[in-house]
């Protein structure tokens, strides 16, 4: 294809996106669009399956049968999200094995929030309330993103995330209406999860390298800082209802702007975790790699069995 032809295709492509048309897997797309989507969708899929680990950590210790069942269902939903996001990604011409390989080698990233440990039951509430809450704010705009399979997957993901968020908040509410010890557990969880949750929106707009292109392709509709502000404005009143305190001495309502002002995020900590040196980066990655390696004989058996069945079918067909 000549440069002029590619340029024409690119113009037609950009015009389709401008008209809010969906791009489907078999449509022509610029290589950069394909690569950006593989990067973002796989990062999202990896986040779902790595995210199963900190919460799965509490399944065996959930404090009641009702909570155990709800947590199992939630973690199962996350596995499901991982599954359809990997499938959406595969439509862009990359296999699930390759995507896993990128995760295991550290080439692909996943959300840094899952590199923090879940050390009390209240952390399960805080993750639902804050982490799923932040995820929803990041993800709702993606229901209208330009790439069809991603947009459709996100509609379902967002519905379930919204349920998880209410569930998490309800855990926090139960703790805050409970004994002093339970309330202290809730406060401690908020103390530890607040700042990492704010970091989920990524670096400041000035530092963000992907924002401009992503806005153009409707992979992003608002900037990191706008989304972070939206999260804070939405979450602070919820903490007030719980009767626990957001751990930011600089947090205060600004009448003029109509938003909360907030303190400086510890960007050194942010980059440390992104670069692989958070409290649980090693544990999370090891867990995924171990599951994959220890499961190899099982996957090999399934393939070998399927092959044998195929051959048997073919032989029976021949004989008849």
């Amino acid at each position: 294809m000549s440069d002029t032809e590619v340029k024409n295709l690119e113009e037609l492509f950009e015009a389709r996106i401008a008209r809010d048309e969906k791009i489907e897997p078999k449509d022509w797309m610029p290589e950069k669009y394909r690569q950006t989507h593989i990067r973002q969708i796989s990062q999202h899929a990896h986040s779902e399956i790595v995210g199963m680990l900190p919460e799965g950590n509490w399944i065996t210790r959930a404090p009641s049968l009702r909570r155990k069942a709800a947590l199992l269902a939630k973690v199962q939903d996350e596995a499901g999200h991982g599954l359809y996001l990997y499938s959406a990604c595969e439509t862009l011409g990359i296999s699930r094995e390759e995507l896993y390989e990128q995760l295991h080698s550290g080439k692909a990233k996943y959300s840094s929030i899952f590199n923090y440990p879940t050390i009390t039951w209240a952390d399960i509430g805080a993750i639902g309330w804050l982490v799923d809450g932040a995820a929803i704010i990041n993800q709702v705009p993606l229901c209208n993103t330009s790439f069809g399979p991603y947009a459709r997957a996100m509609v379902r993901v967002c519905k379930e995330e919204s349920f998880h968020q209410r569930q998490g908040y309800e855990i926090m509410l139960t703790l805050c209406n409970g004994t002093e010890e339970q309330k202290a557990m809730a406060q401690d969880a908020l103390n530890r999860w607040w700042w990492p949750s704010l970091m989920m929106f990524g670096p400041t707009d000035a530092e963000s390298t992907h924002t401009e292109q992503s806005m153009k392709w409707k992979l992003k509709r608002k900037t990191n800082d706008e989304l972070r502000q939206q999260f804070i404005d939405q979450t602070v009143p919820q903490a007030d209802i719980l009767g626990i305190t957001v751990p930011d001495p600089d947090l205060k309502w600004n009448e003029e702007s109509g938003h909360y002002d907030f303190g400086e995020i510890d960007w050194d900590e942010f980059w440390q975790v992104v670069k692989g040196h958070g409290p649980c980066n090693k544990e999370r990655l090891d867990a995924r790699v171990n599951a994959w390696e220890e499961g190899e004989w099982v996957r090999d058996a399934a393939m070998a069995y399927a092959d044998k069945q195929e051959k048997r079918k073919a032989t029976t067909k021949k004989a008849s």
Partner: peptide
Amino acid sequence: GELCGHGPSLETDIALTN
């Protein structure tokens, strides 16, 4: 419940959790 997130494939993970 101990196995959640540690299965040999995503599909078996989902099934065992279920």
